[in-house]
Amino acid sequence: MAYDKFVTLTSRAVPLPVENVDTDQIIPARFLKAVERKGFGDNLFRDWRYDKANQPIADFPLNDSKYSGKILVGGKNFGSGSSREHAAWAIYDYGFRVVVSSFFADIFKGNSLNNGLLPVIVSPAFLEKIFAAIEADPTTELEVDLENQKITLLTTGESEEFEINAYKKHCLQNGLDDIDYLVNMKEEIEAFER
């Protein structure tokens, strides 16, 4: 799927200091009936974001006007559970380009990378610092520098390096996806089959 090339991103961040945010919370199953990849952002965190009467729950961070930005910061083990790629689509469609956590579930991490959404893994200590900084001042900005694999808290200048596999980094920076790569390998795959 085509997505925007990822260059350095400087943005405010929305905090979600909850652990084990599973993909059933990110996008509940009843919203998976679409046959196209459209509009999932509207139902991102649906049951945490809206009450039974479909009214926004005021203290949920996405509804709290003091928070904004293209970076979502979540507690550890983010994206556990179902393999639904709709979770990554919903986060991207809502407008996020980066998710920061100290730990991601494997499938979610892979799905994000396949959709131009960058999962940034930081140390538990740095994650706490980010949460604390945003709580102290919601206008706090973070800089995510993919080329140098570095995330910086701009208020204090503190930064940390993050890991990403070189191939995936190349894909993100160039807006490429694996399917192009595989389709071009057809002859090798046919040879392997024999």
Binding site: A88, D178, L182
Partner: peptide, 17 residues
């Protein structure tokens, strides 16, 4: 288990990365 992008990869090439 795989995501939908990977489903597309398998359909297109019988491989995933």
């Amino acid at each position: 288990g795989i995501g939908t992008s990977e489903v597309e990869m398998v359909l297109a090439s019988q491989c995933i990365m």
